[in-house]
Design a protein around this nucleic acid. Structure first.
Length: 806
RNA sequence: AGGCGCGUAGCUCAGUUGGUUAGAGCGCUACCUUGACAUGGUAGAGGUCGUUGGUUCGACUCCAAUCGCGCCUACCA
C-alpha cells in the first residue's frame, strides 16, 4: 500500500537523522540458502548431536603444541589467534608465543582473554575465528591492537566463506590466505576434508560426541552462519527505554500479567536490530550511494539530490536491500490510519484498546509496535495486550507440517475423510521420508476421518479452552461436546418456537426496545426463577469477558442453557402450557418468558457462537418483541436488577431438591421413572406444606408423584426410602416401590424350577443353592411387603391435616 | 545457566481474596425409542488435588524443599 510505504520511508529517514539508524560492517546471522541477513529473532536454536574435534596447533618454537577443541573444525581457516585464560597455570608462560596454524601457511599468536576463556571447559584453549563467531568477534575487538602489531601474522578478520557458505577463493592481491586445496568446497565437505587432512598429519588428537545448540533459519531450516557484511541497524536502546516504562507504569497491561516479565527480560537486554534484508520483496531502503560510496538517506531520490545539492546527472544508485518485514509491521498501529498525515481516523482510533496475539509474537511485533508508537505518536499503540495460548495437537505437540499433526480448522468445520486427510498431511513435504510415518499415525488417530463439527462448535471450543496462561491441547472430545451443545440450543429453540409461534406471548407488535405486555399476564415460580438466573448469567458472562476469561464466559453460557434453561425451565413450562385448566394469563406469562429468555440468551452467546444464534434470532426476535435486521446490531444483554429474584431462587431450589430426591430414590430402587409413587412428608414445616401444595403440578409432572401426604409430627411413616429437602424428609414407602405381582410371579418361577427333579438332580449344587437363596429372599420381600401394605392402609385411614390428594 | 508455566477423576480441563461433602465435558455403568433433542433423558461409579515438610482452628489454594514435564531467553569454544 502506497500510504504504508510513505510511513516506512518517513520513519526510516527520521530515525536515520537522529542517529538511531546506522549502517555498518558487522557480523550478522547469514542464511546461506536465502542469501540474506536475518535478525536474532529469526534464528531458532535447537539442540543437536555433533562432535567436538580436538586439534593440535604446533608451537612455532618447535616445543610441542596446544590442543584446541572445536565443534566447527573448518573455521580453522579463519583463525587469528588462540586464546587462553591469563590465570591458567598450564598456559600462562605461553602467552605471546606463536602457533603454526595447521593446513595453512599462517602463524597466529597465543593471547590471554579472561572474559571468554573458561579454563575448566575443554582444553582451556580457544581458537579465535572473529569473522565467523560472535564471541570470537568480541575477543578480536578487545585485542585488535596486539593482533595487528606483528608483520608476521594476518591482521585478523578473515572471511572464509562465500554467500553460499562454501570456502571462498583468495581475493586479488591476497597471498593465499585460503589454501587452494579447499577452495570451492561446501562448508561440510570442507570440514570432512580438513579433518581427514589433520588426521593424516597427526594433528587430530581425538573426536568426542557432543551435544550442541545449532542455529537454524526459521524459514530455510539451514544452519545460520555468522557472516561479515554491511547491514543497516536500528539502535534500539533509546527506543526500548520508554517502551519498558510504558509497561512498568501500567499504561500498557499484559493479560495474563506474567508476560510482562518476558517482555522486560528481552527489552532490557535488547541488541541492535539488523533491518536490512537481501531479498527481492519488501520496502526498499531509502538510501542512495554515489560512486565514491557516500551514503544519502532521504524520502526520495529527488529529495536527496535537493538536500545535498547534487546535480541531476550526478550518478546515484539506490540501496538494493529491503527492510525486515517487521520494520513496517512495527508501524502498523498508525501507518494504517494514514500517518504521517494527521488524519481524522488517526485521531479517532489511535491508540486502540487491546491487541490480541500469541506469545511468540511479543518480541517480533508487540515490543516493536510499542517502541515505534511511543517514538512517533508519542503515545502507546494499545492499552492491553491479551496473550493467548498456542493450539497444540492432542498430545501437546506443536503443530507442524513436518510432524504431520496439523489440524486445519476448515477440516474441523466441514469434516474430512481419512484419505483426504492423509493426502493433505503427506503432500508437498520438505522431508518426504516422513510421509509413511505420518500416514500411519494419521490412520491410527483418525480412523474414520474427522466429522463435520461446524463453525460455532469450533469457536465455542476455543473459547471454552482459552484458560489464560495455558496452551490448548486440541481434543476432539471437547469439540464434539460443544457440537452437541449447539444442537441442544437448536432443539430447545425448536421447542420454544413450537409453543410460541402463532400464540399470544403478551408482547404485542415488535418495537425497537422493551415491549410492554399488552394483556394481563402472570409469571409462575419457574418464570421468575429463570429470569433471575438469566440476570446472574449475564453478570457472570460480562465479568468473564471483562477479564478475558473466555473459558468462564463459555462455561456460564453452557451451564445456564443446558442445566437451567433446558433441563429445568423447558420441562417446567410443560405443565403450564399443556394444562387446559391453566389461566390464559399464566400461559401468556410463560410463553413470554420462554421466548424472551431465549432472545436474551442468543445475544449473550452470539459472540461465541455467531451463526446459530443469528439463525434462531431471526425467528425468535419478533416473537420476543424485538425488532432489528440482525442480532449483530443488537446490544449485548445487560443485567436487569429488577428481575433478580432471590425468593424465587430459594423456592425453586426447594422444588428442585424435592424432585431430585424422588428421582434419586427411583434410580437407586430401580423403579421406572414414569411410575407414579405415593409420597409422605415427615418433619414438614409450614413453609414446606405450603410449597408442596403450591407447586404440586410441578412435582407431579417432573417427579411423577401419585399422591403427597403430610405425616403428623410424631409419625415416622412406613418403612421407606427417604430424601432430605432441607429439614423435611421425603418418604417413598418401599411397598409402593415393589411390584407385588411381579414379585409373586418371580417366586412362582423359582418354585417351579426347584420343583423340577431334573434341575435339582442334574444342575451343579452351587447353582441349585443360588436358586434356593433367591427363593428365600423373594419370600422375605413379599412378607415385608404385606406388612407394609397393612401399615399404609391404616395410615391412609385418617390424617385430616394432610393436604387433599389431587 | 537464567526466566516463566504446568502436574486435580481413565482423558481434556475449571477451581475466584484459604472455609462444610473438590466441579464440568468426554469416556464408563444401569435404566429409558416420554411429545424440542438418542448429537438425547434419568440415576450412578470414579479423585489421599505430583511428593515431603511448614504456617493455620482449617490448605487444591499460602510458604519451603523435592520429583516429573513443557516453553522462552542466553550460551560453553
Amino acid at each position: 500500500m502506497e500510504g504504508l510505504s510513505e510511513a516506512v520511508k518517513e520513519v526510516f529517514v527520521r530515525l536515520y537523522e537522529e542517529g538511531l539508524i546506522y549502517r555498518g560492517k558487522r557480523l550478522v546471522n547469514w542464511d546461506p540458502k536465502l542469501h540474506t541477513a536475518v535478525s536474532d529473532l529469526e534464528v531458532l536454536n535447537e539442540e543437536e548431536y555433533g562432535h567436538m574435534w580436538h586439534m593440535r596447533y604446533p608451537l612455532s618454537n618447535g616445543k610441542g603444541h596446544l590442543v584446541v577443541a572445536t565443534t566447527r573444525p573448518e573455521t580453522l581457516l579463519g583463525d587469528c589467534a588462540v586464546a587462553v585464560n591469563p590465570h591458567d597455570e598450564r598456559y600462562k608462560h605461553l602467552i605471546g608465543e606463536l602457533l603454526e596454524l595447521p593446513l595453512t601457511k599462517r602463524r597466529i599468536p597465543i593471547i590471554a582473554d579472561e572474559e571468554h576463556v573458561d579454563p575448566e571447559f575443554g582444553t582451556g584453549c580457544v581458537k579465535i575465528t572473529p569473522a565467523h563467531d560472535f564471541n570470537d568477534y568480541a575477543v578480536w575487538q578487545r585485542h585488535r591492537d596486539e593482533l595487528s602489531i606483528s608483520e608476521q601474522i594476518h591482521g585478523g578478520l578473515i572471511n572464509i566463506f562465500t554467500i553460499d557458505a562454501a570456502i571462498r577463493d583468495n581475493d586479488e592481491g591476497e597471498d593465499e590466505v585460503i589454501p587452494s586445496a579447499y577452495i570451492g568446497m561446501d562448508r561440510y565437505h570442507a570440514r570432512k576434508q580438513m579433518v581427514a587432512d589433520l588426521e593424516a598429519q597427526g594433528l587430530l588428537e581425538k573426536v568426542d560426541d557432543h551435544k550442541l545448540m545449532v542455529p537454524r533459519g526459521d524459514r530455510s531450516g539451514v544452519v545460520i552462519e555468522p557472516y561479515l557484511t554491511d547491514q543497516w541497524y536500528v539502535k534500539v536502546g533509546p527506543l526500548a527505554k520508554p517502551a519498558i516504562e510504558a509497561v512498568e507504569t501500567g499504561r500498557i497491561r499484559f493479560v495474563p500479567d506474567n508476560w510482562k516479565n518476558t517482555y522486560y527480560e528481552w527489552m532490557r537486554n535488547i541488541q541492535d536490530w539488523c533491518i536490512s534484508r537481501q531479498i527481492w520483496w519488501g520496502h526498499r531502503i531509502p538510501a542512495w550511494y554515489d560512486e565514491e560510496g557516500n551514503v544519502y538517506v532521504g524520502r526520495s531520490e529527488a529529495e536527496v539530490r535537493e538536500r545535498h545539492d547534487l546535480a541531476a546527472d550526478y550518478p546515484l544508485r539506490q540501496d538494493e536491500d529491503v527492510l525486515d518485514t517487521w520494520f513496517s509491521s512495527a508501524l502498523w498501529p498508525f501507518s494504517t490510519l494514514g500517518w504521517p498525515e494527521e488524519s481524522e481516523r488517526l485521531r479517532d482510533f489511535y491508540p486502540t484498546s487491546v491487541l490480541v496475539t500469541g506469545f511468540d509474537i511479543i518480541f517480533f511485533w508487540v515490543a516493536r509496535m510499542i517502541m515505534m508508537g511511543l517514538k512517533f505518536m508519542d503515545d502507546v499503540p494499545f492499552h492491553e495486550v491479551y496473550v493467548h495460548g498456542l493450539v497444540r495437537d492432542s498430545h501437546g505437540h506443536k503443530m507442524s507440517k513436518s510432524k504431520g499433526n496439523v489440524l486445519d480448522p476448515i477440516d474441523l468445520i466441514d469434516g474430512i475423510t481419512l484419505e483426504d486427510l492423509v493426502q493433505k498431511r503427506t503432500s508437498g513435504m520438505m522431508q518426504p521420508q516422513l510421509a509413511n510415518k505420518i500416514n500411519q499415525l494419521t490412520r491410527k488417530e483418525f480412523a474414520d476421518g474427522i466429522p463435520s463439527f461446524g463453525t460455532d462448535s469450533l469457536r465455542f471450543t476455543f473459547a471454552a479452552l482459552a484458560a489464560t496462561g495455558r496452551d490448548i491441547k486440541f481434543d476432539l472430545g471437547r469439540i464434539e461436546g460443544y457440537r452437541n451443545f449447539c444442537n441442544k440450543l437448536w432443539n430447545a429453540s425448536r421447542y420454544v418456537m413450537m409453543n410460541v409461534e402463532g400464540q399470544d406471548c403478551g408482547v404485542g407488535a415488535p418495537t425497537t426496545g422493551h415491549s410492554e405486555p399488552v394483556a394481563e399476564l402472570e409469571r409462575s415460580l419457574a418464570d421468575r426463577w429463570i429470569l433471575s438466573r438469566l440476570q446472574k448469567t449475564k453478570r457472570a458472562v460480562a465479568e468473564a469477558f471483562e477479564s478475558y476469561r473466555f473459558d468462564h464466559a463459555a462455561q456460564a453460557i453452557y451451564e445456564f442453557t443446558w442445566n437451567e434453561y433446558c433441563d429445568w425451565y423447558l420441562e417446567l413450562c410443560k405443565p403450564v402450557l399443556n394444562d387446559d385448566n391453566a389461566s390464559e394469563a399464566a400461559k401468556r406469562g410463560t410463553r413470554r418468558t420462554l421466548v424472551r429468555v431465549l432472545e436474551n440468551l442468543l445475544r449473550l452467546a452470539h459472540p461465541i457462537m455467531p451463526f446459530i444464534t443469528e439463525e434462531i434470532w431471526q425467528r425468535a426476535a419478533p416473537l420476543a418483541g424485538v425488532e432489528g435486521e440482525t442480532i449483530m446490531n443488537r446490544p449485548f444483554p445487560t443485567l436487569r436488577q429488577s428481575l433478580v429474584d432471590e425468593a424465587a431462587e430459594t423456592e425453586m431450589a426447594w422444588v428442585m431438591q424435592f424432585i431430585l430426591g424422588i428421582r434419586k430414590i427411583k434410580g437407586e430402587m430401580n423403579i421406572a421413572p414414569a411410575k407414579p409413587v405415593p409420597v409422605y412428608l415427615a418433619n414438614a414445616s409450614d413453609d414446606d406444606k405450603l410449597l408442596a401444595q403450591k407447586h404440586r403440578h410441578f412435582l407431579d409432572f417432573l417427579a411423577r408423584t401419585e399422591s403427597i401426604e403430610v405425616l403428623a409430627p410424631d409419625d415416622h411413616g412406613p418403612e421407606s426410602a427417604t430424601a432430605l429437602v432441607g429439614e423435611m424428609k421425603v418418604l417413598i414407602p418401599l411397598a409402593g416401590l415393589i411390584d407385588k405381582d411381579a414379585e409373586i410371579k418371580r417366586l412362582d418361577r423359582i418354585g417351579k424350577k426347584l420343583g423340577n427333579p431334573n434341575f435339582v438332580d442334574k444342575a451343579p449344587e452351587a447353582v441349585v443353592q443360588k436358586e434356593r437363596d433367591k427363593q428365600a429372599e423373594a419370600r422375605k420381600a413379599l412378607e415385608s411387603l404385606q406388612a407394609q401394605l397393612a401399615k399404609i392402609k391404616s395410615l391412609q385411614g385418617g390424617d385430616p391435616a394432610s393436604p387433599p390428594n389431587a
